[in-house]
Write a protein that binds this DNA or RNA. Structure first.
Length: 216
DNA sequence: ATGACGATTTACT
DNA sequence: GTAAATCGTCATA
């Protein structure tokens, strides 16, 4: 038995995940969580911006091809991790990148995880999780969590959060995919506007929605 | 074996 | 606005 929430095309899931709760449980039992405020969809083999473009399937991106609801965590720029939710269907490379969150639990731990020796000013709460690599740093998400089942895992899961109306959501082109030719400008990034925690200045566009169907 | 590069973040001019 | 940091991964040979 398994939920079908993640058996959706990436663009639909990306919209749906806005306002949902991302929860990380550490080995010592600490709970870190946040409401998802920004996502990006990576559609499939036709998507030039995707790690799965052209049907590329390697050890690194294997989780993109896995069962919907599998965590795809990759390492990039020699120092950052990014977290995605694999979706649509097994043996098809699609995923939603989680780019931003509003901290709700474990705030102090996340601030500690995000602190460095050479940081200018103390981090504001809004800067704890407003970026794909920042979320992973704050919540201690790395390659050891790659491939886990988000519907089963005690370590990392996605729960029902707040229902966000369309008028509060903005849809824009994706960030950092300038190499993707005709795919670089497609509106596949979703932002929960009032939360103002987007990882990057937006433009303008719009899109449609449905309800959420995840566990409490 | 090698080289080019990246779904980013930070600090600095 | 620009540049540095920093290394796993992949394509090429």
């Amino acid at each position: 038995m398994h939920s079908e929430v993640f058996d959706l095309p990436a663009d639909q899931l990306a919209r749906l995940l806005i306002g949902c709760q991302l929860r990380r449980t550490l080995d010592d039992g600490s709970i870190l969580s946040g409401l998802i405020t920004e996502t990006e969809a990576y559609i499939g083999p036709e998507d030039r911006a995707s790690h799965g473009f052209g049907g590329r399937r390697t050890q690194r991106n294997e989780s993109m091809w896995a069962q919907p609801g599998t965590a795809y965590v990759y390492f990039t720029y020699g120092m950052h991790h990014c977290f995605n939710v694999s979706c649509y269907k097994e043996n098809h490379p699609a995923a939603v990148l989680i780019r931003g969150g509003k901290p709700t639990l474990g705030n102090g731990i996340m601030r500690a995880n995000r602190s460095t020796k050479l940081r200018k000013n103390p981090l504001r709460e809004k800067d704890l999780c407003n970026g794909p690599a920042k979320i992973c740093q704050a919540m201690l998400i790395d390659r050891t969590l790659d491939g886990i089942d988000l519907l089963q895992s005690a370590q990392l899961t996605i729960l029902k959060g707040i229902k966000v109306p369309d008028q509060e959501i903005q849809c824009t082109p994706r960030i950092g995919v300038g190499y993707a030719q005709e795919w670089k400008d497609k509106p596949l990034r979703w932002i929960w506007k009032p939360q103002n925690s987007a990882s990057n200045p937006p433009a303008d566009a719009k899109r449609s929605s449905e309800g959420c169907d995840l566990p409490e």
